[in-house]
Design a protein around this nucleic acid. Structure first.
Lengths: 247, 247
DNA sequence: TAGTGGTCTAGACCACCGC
DNA sequence: CGGTGGTCTAGACCACTAG
């Protein structure tokens, strides 16, 4: 559509498809599009936003994969029936704090330890380090409403950070620390495992059963260069992962 | 490309993008495209297959999400380094047998029990059944190379099947049974859980630790009508799930 | 700077749904 | 049947990579 007669204003962040996706999500959240209601047709949304239908479809696909809408061939797209519970799609890579906030809870982060040490041979290979290079190893507890929901063990090359900053790495968001250092992880390939290990974590609030979903992740930047890896243990029952599987 | 001068022959199964994706996967498997090698450019592939670049991109995105290739902006697409280990993307909805075969193993299926009974109130709501309707409940063991890798508990409305067929449901692929009955599940929304439960499963080969990844799934057809639900317990350590997470 | 992938467009045709 | 989503095309321009 070249005539912007009815363009809805978009926050110019990221790709057009992301902007549309964000805006529709906002309109769902605000109640403008209520549960089980039909969204405007793809053609109508394209006209309203002043973008092509392909772009609208890309945006809707994102919302679908997050379980927010339900796209039905021949009928339309519908706001998903609840229940109200905000679910985290496992395909989305976001900082833990973001994810928890999006779930409607108050995030917290507690760094348990920070170690500066030489990389092991395995770490050297995984992160493509020079021989003898140093890494920072960080152990953190992730809280939602002051309750531990995950324990994360992260390993990142020490050279990313100037010495005066290194000691503060991981006090809050590791993603933010990396961004500030000009390192931008954008993807992670993750293995999903079930783990029982009572030695995982620390503190008195730690889940007693020691049952976790482990995401064993290697984060890479846009060039697929390894940036850091992490093992994050999500306490079963305190964190819900959802995935939309398609044929 | 309208001139099919160099069309590579494709198996006319599914969408064009799927055909391209399948063919490139085959060429990777055959070694024509070796590990860490660069694939032909998207433009070149589009010309070779006689399809648009958009279609090639859709196909490559699928392979990327399965961890088979590595797409790098400005450089090209590369066959992922192995590993040799064949991995199953959690976003793909396929029958267990298909998945195991694709992993390079010999699939097997053993039905442990088949129960015809009235649906519980919860099942009625989940599957949108009429009051008092009957369901089939099936318990099966999934084998790879004769070794149990998963236990599946499936519940499906009894009315899908004529009486003479009902007793054979789930002896092999439930997907096939449903297809034959004109029911076509195409998507599943799944919750992912970690479970420890020694009462899961049966038989002498059952994993002793009783540790599983549970996929709690509701399968729906194209109209998002619930078709059946299943709880599938994948033995930790015998089955590997992978997911590509993106920002 | 040449070549690659990243994004977007306008338009087309098909398959499916519900009236 | 009209309206919806599903798929595909040809072309365009941009951002990134590497020599």
């Amino acid at each position: 559509m070249t005539s912007p007669t009815s363009d809805r204003r978009l926050r110019p962040t990221g790709t057009l498809a992301q902007q549309v996706s964000d805006d529709v999500r906002k309109r769902i959240g605000s109640g403008e599009f209520a549960a089980n209601e039909r969204l405007p047709s793809e053609t109508a949304l394209a006209a309203e936003y002043g973008v092509s239908r392909v772009t609208v479809r890309t945006a809707l696909r994102t919302l679908e994969s997050q379980g927010l809408i339900d796209v039905r061939h021949g009928s339309g797209s519908f706001v998903a029936g609840f229940g109200t519970q905000i679910r985290a799609g496992i395909q989305e890579l976001r900082s833990m704090s973001e994810t928890i906030r999006a779930m409607g809870h108050t995030p917290g982060m507690q760094r348990h330890s920070l170690t500066h040490r030489r990389a092991t041979p395995e770490e050297e290979e995984l992160l493509r380090l020079a021989s003898g290079e140093a890494v920072l190893h960080i152990e953190r507890m992730v809280l939602a409403d002051r309750r531990p929901v995950a324990f994360s063990y992260d390993t990142v090359p020490a050279r990313f950070f100037p010495p005066e900053r290194a000691e503060h790495v991981g006090e809050a968001s590791l993603f933010d620390d990396l961004d500030a250092a000009g390192i931008h992880p954008v993807r992670a390939s993750a293995e999903i495992h079930a783990v029982v290990d009572p030695t995982i974590g620390w503190g008195s609030n730690r889940p007693k059963q020691g049952l976790y979903i482990l995401l064993d992740q290697l984060h890479v930047d846009r060039q697929s260069t390894p940036v850091f890896f992490s093992k994050t243990y999500f306490a079963e029952g305190r964190f819900q992962f959802v995935v939309l599987r398609t044929r």
